[in-house]
Every structure is written in C-alpha cells, then in structure tokens.
Design a protein around this nucleic acid. Sequence first.
DNA 1: CAGTATCCGATGCGATACTG
DNA 2: CAGTATCGCATCGGATACTG
Lengths: 255, 255
Amino acid sequence: MEQVQQLYRPGALDTGEERKMNERGYGQFCPVAMASEVLGSRWTILVLRELLCGSQRFNDLRKGMPRISPALLSKRLRELEDLGVVARTTDARSGTPGYRMTEAGEELRPVIMSMGTWGQRWLESQLSLKNLDPSLLMWDMRRNLDPTPLPSRPVTIQFLYPDVTKGQKKWWLLVNKEDKHAAVDLCMLDPGFDVDLYVVSDLRTMTAIWMGIMTVPQAIDEGKLQLSGERALQSSMQAWLGLSPFAQETKRVNA
Amino acid sequence: MEQVQQLYRPGALDTGEERKMNERGYGQFCPVAMASEVLGSRWTILVLRELLCGSQRFNDLRKGMPRISPALLSKRLRELEDLGVVARTTDARSGTPGYRMTEAGEELRPVIMSMGTWGQRWLESQLSLKNLDPSLLMWDMRRNLDPTPLPSRPVTIQFLYPDVTKGQKKWWLLVNKEDKHAAVDLCMLDPGFDVDLYVVSDLRTMTAIWMGIMTVPQAIDEGKLQLSGERALQSSMQAWLGLSPFAQETKRVNA
DNA sequence: CAGTATCCGATGCGATACTG
DNA sequence: CAGTATCGCATCGGATACTG
C-alpha cells in the first residue's frame, strides 16, 4: 500500500491549467467553505451580530461598530441583502429605512452565538483589556439593561470613568419605565435631570463586570467601584445592569 | 426624550484622536468580535475544518485545500499554534511532523459545524455546482467511506467522470479492511489491481449524491450513474459511500 | 515530504468629503 | 439621518522557486 499512496496527486498541486474563474473564492462545494465565503469578509460577522442584537437603523449599526466606514457598512448590507440574509425595511409611518434579519439570517444566530461562547471561553482576557471602549460598553449596557428591578418613574444614572480620555468620561443612562416596556436612552452630554445614582469606576472594572468576570459587590469590596445616590438603585445594580450575553460562560484559559 | 437621544454621539464618529494601535483589529472587547479576528482571516476556517476532519499532515491539509499556497498554510498554522488552537506534533517513531487540535481547537467543532449546517440549508446549490472539483470530492469520499458493508478483502473501485478534463477523469479507491479498521487509499494512476466495481457518472451527479441532494438509486434511475462489476458492491454503494457530514440537513432555499 | 524565501500585483478597506 | 463618491495606500495573499 505504500507506493500506492504516491499514485494520488491532488488536483491542487496540479499544473494550474484551468483555474480561471471563481478566482476570489475557495472553489469548494463544501458547505463550510461556502459559508466562509459569505461570512468571512471583514465586518460581516459584526454586522450580523448587531442586527441579531436588535439594531435596525443604519446609524445604530454604526454605533455598535464605531470603526466601520459608512461606505463599507453600506456595501456589506447590500451584499447580505443580495444573499437573502438581510432584508431592507421601510417604516410605514415615518418612511425611515431599516434592516432586519430574514429567516436565513435568523438561523445564523446559533453560529454567531457559538463563536461568542468560544471567544469568551478561550480568548485571553488580556485581549479584551486591549479593546476597552467606553462607547461600546455603554451602548451594550443601554441595550441589555433590565428595567424590571427599577422603579416606575424616570431614572437617571450617571457613569464616570476617571481614567478615560476627556470627552468619554461621563455618560448618562435615562430609563423611563412606562407601561411594562421601558425606554432606555444614552447620553454623552448632561441631560439636565437630577441624577438618581452615581457610578464611578475605572473602565476596565466596569467592562469586567459587564463581561461577567467580576460582580458589582466584588468590585465595591475591592474599592474599584463607587456607588452613591439612591440606596435601592445601588443594591439592585447587579440586577438591573444587564450583562453580556456570554457573561455566564466559564473562562477556560487566559493564555 | 427626543432631543436627549441626540446627546449621544458614539465615540466612533469621534474626532479620530486616539486610534493609533490595534489598527488592524476591530477594537472591541465583545467575544464575537475577538473570535472574528481569530477566525476571520482567509483560509483559517478551512484549515480548522481539515484538522477537525482528521487530517494531520501538511500535505494532507493541502489536499483538502488545493488552492492554498504552502507559504500561507504554514503561516496560518503558526498563527493558530500561537493562539493555542492547534498544536504541533512529532511522530515518536518516524519523526514526522504533524498538527492536531488542542482542547480549545476541539471546542471550535460546533462553530464550524453550525456554519456548515447553515451553508447546506441556505446557500444555493447553484453555488456548489460552480465549485465542482473531482479531487476534493474524491478526497472527501476517501475520508468518509464506511467499510462496514464491504467484504473483508482488498477491494478496488474505479470512478470515471467522462465530463471532466483529462487528467482528473479516472480515480481509484482501494479499500483494505484488515482487522476491524480499514485503510482507504486514493489514486489517480491505475494501481494495477483488478477492479471490483466500476462507477461512471458526471461529476455533478456524484457530487450531488455526496451532498445528500440525490441518492444512488435515484441517479441510476435517471441514467446519470452507471455501475458495473460486483453486484454486492453495487447494491451496497449508498451504504459504503459515506456522505458529507451535512448531507442529512434539509435544504431550505435555492435562491 | 515539509516547509521557506521572495516578489509583486490586485483590491480591500480606511479616511474624508459630500448629497438628498 | 442615511447613505454615496472618490482617492490612495497598505497588505494580503497568490505564484513560483528553492531548501533541508
């Protein structure tokens, strides 16, 4: 059987005779390869993540991906639309354009989630710490905040990150819990309302809490998080502060 | 609440003040983003697929990815090694180098599989048909062939694809079922053994069968597949011919 | 067999400005 | 707000040849 093995020479190592078309792709019929061609281009996965997280409008998508250029975002959305993964919408009343996942797109949820779960388990926290970003953190918090434990009146919470570059230091979350579902707004400029709860922490700590690496009480104990203002809001913070969808996933290594 | 919304301006649309480092990455702490940075570069997913399918040696990996250059494969493997996803091995006896998945890499299996499942369900078969490749098909068949229904003696099966460019028309699968686990070899040159079963089909049909879009009896009925030689091998072909891991997945659209 | 070394071209993408 | 238009550079990766 030894010499027989040599009789196989992959068409790949071939003479390069007929490789004209499909240049850019992998040229494989394997479903994994085809899916990779769709999902592999830069920013695509993050566009899908944003849509799966509920963002619908162009500039909301941008907030979740600060570094993407509008041109490229537009291009990616068109590509995904052509593929039948994303559908363009138009609000009946306002005429505002938007985007949503199609059924095919929705079925990418387990793919994206499994990627995130794996990332949370295996990619070193060090990497996370290189990628701290207050705007992304606050935008995520805005999205996942759970108003259930909050009182049924407008609540203003101010976040202060002393270690962050000027201009991104202060943030306000405004929660308005009206008839069961709540509106949460995020501001970088003082909205002028009385603040019900002040939160002070370094960005790294707050991010760690968000990612489930640390809890609110722990951070307070270690002196890395200071709360002041309404007592009830303080003690319920771990509850109303929604965590990252991957927060419960156990870390395996910090290589 | 209307005007309040305006008070938020994402740090992304910012002045571009301090975006010096981490240029190439996404700059996000989100696990999905971090995983994307790892898995997003070209060929990486396919390298992992090959390893998860059992290939261990450099040139076997190449057979599964005919179009990757050795330089790039080498680079990808080093990157994955640095990440702790892949480990380099050395055969104790022969000293042959090789690669295997680490525990972290093994946990990527559900990620890759879900990508493939999605691809099989939602990406048009048309795309598959653009990517026909006899060497990939035969290499996959070699890998997934199930020797269970085969007799316990050396078996030679010849495949002929009349529609394929000369040099890739004929293939031989040699199955040697010795003491429970079998050795399967693939050749492009006549190994010289007596052929027990002849298979003639166009490449597209054989690929469709492999992908679970069509069955052996169907293809025979439609006159797209001809078998000759040992009867037992003919009738058990659907059984010994292992199918693509995604073959059972239902197609949803052929856009 | 298992890679390295080198070169070079296409293009992806970032940055910026502008429009309806 | 929701994109389009344009420009230019870096870099990714393809091709090829070579080595231990």
